[in-house]
Amino acid sequence: MSDVVVQVAKRVVLPVALLFSVMVALGVLVTRVLARSWPFTVEDTVNRELAADRTPGWNDVSLVFSTLASTQLIVVVTVLVALVLRLVLHRWREPLFLCAAVSAQALVFLFTTMVIDRHRPAVEHMDASPPTSSFPSGHTSAATALYVGIAVLLALRAKRTPAKITWWALLVLVPVGVAVTRMYRGMHHPSDVVASFLNGGACVAIMARAVLDHTLTWGRAKLPVDSSGDDVAPAPASAG
């Protein structure tokens, strides 16, 4: 049990805590230290230009992408994909990785908003504002963790390079679309969504290293391997 605790601390708790510290540090830089420095001085201009270019058609498109990253849909998709992975692969490693990545980014996001208080852009907001700070973007962070996490799993299963590229291209476009959507709808500054890419992407990397690494034993002794590469069961202990 002690080995498991050490592995969890080294590969999950400490990296996530470090990520939280980095997010808070970035938030302080954006909202205080560098608030009057370029490029943060032009963020309001970007939001105003996006708001001025709104059209009924793009409003509908933005609503689709924003919905793809809503809290309710993120939870539903995560649970459904995890269940499918469990039923198809008959193991817990992949479902645990996806759920852990999405959960970790949510925790980092939530605690960061408790420390960093940033007002949303000074344009018309197309969505109801949740009771959290503008920094970082929860929608973008969640979309990055979920859809990039799925891309990682599908790419690992794909045997051909074109298939890997296709999965990455299709699924990575979702968080990118969500990021642009959240700015277009007046809910976040550019730096909010950039920081969210870091949060979601880092959580995927942390959990991939912690859960998908097949060399980890998580407290169980590794079986010896014979010349064919198959695990060899230990010989039963002598009764005498």
Results as ranks from 00 to 15, higher is better:
127 D>M: 11
129 S>C: 13
130 P>A: 11
132 T>V: 10
133 S>M: 04
136 P>M: 06
137 S>N: 02
138 G>V: 02
138 G>S: 01
139 H>N: 00
140 T>Q: 02
142 A>F: 01
143 A>L: 01
145 A>M: 02
146 L>T: 04
147 Y>F: 12
147 Y>M: 08
149 G>C: 07
151 A>E: 05
152 V>F: 10
153 L>N: 09
154 L>T: 13
155 A>E: 06
155 A>W: 10
158 A>L: 10
158 A>P: 12
159 K>D: 08
160 R>W: 09
160 R>L: 13
160 R>E: 15
161 T>W: 13
162 P>H: 04
163 A>Y: 11
164 K>E: 15
165 I>Q: 14
165 I>G: 10
169 A>D: 14
169 A>V: 13
170 L>Q: 08
170 L>A: 15
171 L>D: 05
171 L>I: 08
171 L>R: 07
172 V>N: 15
172 V>I: 14
172 V>E: 10
173 L>C: 15
174 V>T: 11
175 P>D: 08
177 G>L: 01
182 R>S: 03
183 M>K: 04
183 M>V: 05
184 Y>Q: 00
190 P>R: 12
192 D>N: 08
192 D>I: 00
193 V>S: 06
194 V>Y: 09
194 V>P: 06
195 A>V: 00
196 S>E: 00
197 F>D: 06
198 L>A: 11
204 V>L: 03
205 A>R: 03
205 A>V: 02
